[in-house]
């Protein structure tokens, strides 16, 4: 009887005879780039421990197959700080079904070499939606992009003439991430949010392996760049944490 009451009241605004659409909670995940304790803005200057000035000009990555303990929340999402800000994705699901989240940083090998034009129009992996994150030939997708300009001479005069281009992909560099005991923040009646941060200071100064932008400034995951490529994407993955 109680159930019947709820069904009737929840459908009271509907036209009689129409099915009642269930309302599904929206779960959103964001990634705020930071540099230590500061929010990171593209094209702004930050100081590295070496004394360099660094201006990040592009931060992008692909997250794929993000799922909870039993259900998938998002098949693929594209973080593009310059174009779309801090939003990573919004998916439908109940917070209790996603008490933990895991996924790929990059694109798993089973689809990494698929025709990038053949993904559905709404998929971020369709080349129309992810232009610039696909090499255009067999290696497939670029998993992460870090681009920056660096002033390597700390003489008080700005000269950001040292370009940093770190484009990492290829199956061997695929990373996984996981977050447990997620406390979804309720932002509306049926809206929940899980904020992450991407700490680019930690990216450079990872406690187990650091990156010196003066000497480690370019990788396209090409032959001869394997060591730096792996270090870059490992550090990038480690720099993402709950905000």
């Amino acid at each position: 009887m109680v159930s019947l009451f709820f069904v009737l009241t929840s459908c009271k605004d509907k036209v009689e005879g129409e099915p009642c659409e269930p309302v599904t909670a929206q779960l959103s995940v964001s990634v705020q780039p930071v540099f230590g304790s500061e929010i990171l803005y593209l094209d702004s200057t930050y100081s590295t421990v070496e004394g360099y000035g660094v201006q990040f000009t592009d931060l992008k990555f692909i997250a794929q197959d993000v799922r909870g303990p039993a259900l998938q929340l998002n098949d693929a999402s594209f973080f593009n700080y310059r174009e779309t800000g801090i939003d990573l994705f919004t998916g439908e699901g109940r917070p209790e079904d996603f008490t933990s989240l895991g996924g790929n940083l990059g694109v798993e090998s089973s689809i990494n070499h698929s025709d990038p034009a053949a993904f559905p129009n709404e998929s971020v992996l369709n080349i129309s939606n992810i232009g610039g994150m696909h090499w255009g030939w067999n290696p497939g997708y670029i998993f992460i992009k870090v681009e920056a300009k660096v002033d390597t001479i700390p003489d008080g005069t700005d000269l950001f003439d040292h370009n940093v281009v770190l484009h990492i992909g290829k199956n061997v560099n695929l990373q996984t991430f996981s977050f447990s005991n997620i406390n979804w923040q309720q932002t509306g009646d049926m809206s929940y949010h899980f904020p992450l941060k991407l700490d680019m200071q930690e990216f450079l100064q990872n406690e187990s392996q650091t990156i010196d932008l003066q000497t480690e400034y370019t990788s396209h995951t090409a032959s001869g760049q394997e060591v730096l490529s792996l270090k870059v994407i490992e550090n990038f993955n480690a720099a993402i944490s709950e905000y």
Partner: peptide, 22 residues
């Protein structure tokens, strides 16, 4: 065209449309 130590053109021109939207 694709080589990093060659012409290095592919960053901005690749894919079926030979163009990156930027």
């Amino acid at each position: 065209f694709k080589s990093l130590n060659g012409a290095d053109c592919f960053h901005c021109h690749n894919g079926p449309l030979m163009q990156v939207k930027k």
